[in-house]
Design a protein around this nucleic acid. Structure first.
Lengths: 232, 232
DNA sequence: CGATCAGTTGACAATACTCAAATACTGTGG
DNA sequence: CCACAGTATTTGAGTATTGTCAACTGATCG
């Protein structure tokens, strides 16, 4: 977890969704308070209840944010990729972290300490607006996620997820599950056995073709119907 | 839907969670752009996809915010009570409303038009901080909600809900379901039949006593265990 | 090359949903 | 204030989906 300071950081921050459109001066200030650190895969960043002394932006790698039920089962809330941030909630709500976070890959993360950051934002309404928009966006995603989770049946949730992935990756009908199937099961709020069965069922029914971690959408229209109706 | 202007509004806004701690001058400005309107019960406020030209604060009554699945089943996202706001996400994300909203009771709502409001906030970073904290708080609640929904079994979700209600109402072991049982079922992501059966099961098992819409918690410890473990 | 872990498959149990029908409530018009 | 219509709630019977437990395969990594 080696900490360094980096000149190119300034420029990179400006490409981040949180700080897109922020003026150069303020980017410089931001990079002045930022701390860059490297992490190995599967390393804990923070746990539920830890004091929120600042928040993070992913520079490289991926971070998993999740809740843990008492019997150890996890529900994944987000997978955070490069340019995305996590942990801001604790900073603004003035409370502790509401979830757990660990790296999935070898990663480098930018840390922004709470007090310094709050001081910066107080002086810059434009910065505040970026943040408001980003939080609103996230809230909107959660709305969709709650909606998806209440599609009670797993096939519907899976279909919706595959379509979102396909759109995001924009590589035609070919897509990559970006998680292990076990992790994906957790993300969809189910277990690996069930996911496995449903994937093969969708393949048998001619919706998709499975090649390991790569999926080919064969019948997009029926997949979309499934995602809409929520049941098979 | 009669619109009026109100002097006491200014003072009331300051007691709102969104604007707590805001200085008098700014409260005056806020009340200057605010529009107060009355609604009958079960009236539509906005629907998913409507343009977000502003947002609302509940002055009296309650508003239900929900998603609708294609076959007409609803998943309640929030019940908004006096002093709470809804619809801000559309304002800051610069997009349309991500859900539906209807009044549950006879209600009066304060409407804050987007453009005027954005202008005010731009001039006042302090105002922005209140908003950031409020949105963060909401995000935190959604985190908990997603966690609760993924406690797949209904008894666990119900137990957790009863305990939250009891805490919120702070009237010892006696609590009021603040929704019809049908609405509560939807909020918990299930159907009335299932809720009914589980309520009587909890009563038979000596966890609670049911008197119509009033519940008495008989064995708080076991109820808490149920909420923790998520299964009966 | 053995150990560990992800993924798959089968048998079974449990939970929750659907459909149907009976009963209790609510509000309204007369 | 009462009767009626329209809801809400409850209960029953059957079905479906998903979770649990267990065993097996295959890949990966020391």
């Amino acid at each position: 977890m080696f900490v360094e300071r980096d000149m190119a950081l300034e420029e990179w921050l400006g490409e981040t969704s949180l700080f897109a459109g922020v003026e150069g001066v303020h980017l410089r200030e931001l990079s002045g308070i930022a701390m860059l650190a490297s992490y190995k895969p599967r390393v804990n960043i923070f746990s539920l209840g830890d004091p929120g002394n600042g928040f993070y932006i992913v520079k490289e790698g991926r971070v998993k944010v999740f809740m843990l039920s008492p019997d150890g089962k996890e529900q994944i809330l987000h997978i955070i990729g490069p340019g995305e941030s996590f942990g801001e909630v604790a900073v603004f709500a003035g409370k502790s972290f509401p979830a757990h976070a660990v790296t999935l890959d070898k990663s480098s993360l930018v840390f922004l300490p709470r007090d310094d950051f709050v001081a910066l934002v107080s002086a810059n309404p434009a910065l505040a607006f970026n943040l408001l928009a980003a939080l609103s966006q996230r809230l909107r995603q959660f709305t969709l996620m709650i909606d998806a989770l209440s599609l009670k049946e797993v096939p519907g949730r899976l279909a919706a997820h595959l379509l979102r992935l396909s759109e995001k990756q924009a590589s035609g009908d070919r897509l990559l599950l970006e998680l292990s199937k076990t992790q994906l099961a957790s993300f969809l709020g189910t277990i690996p056995e069930t996911l496995s069965r449903i994937l093969s069922k969708l393949q048998r029914a001619g919706f998709i073709t499975i090649k390991g971690s790569e999926i080919i959408i064969v019948d997009r229209r029926r997949l979309a119907e499934l995602a809409e109706a929520g049941k098979f």
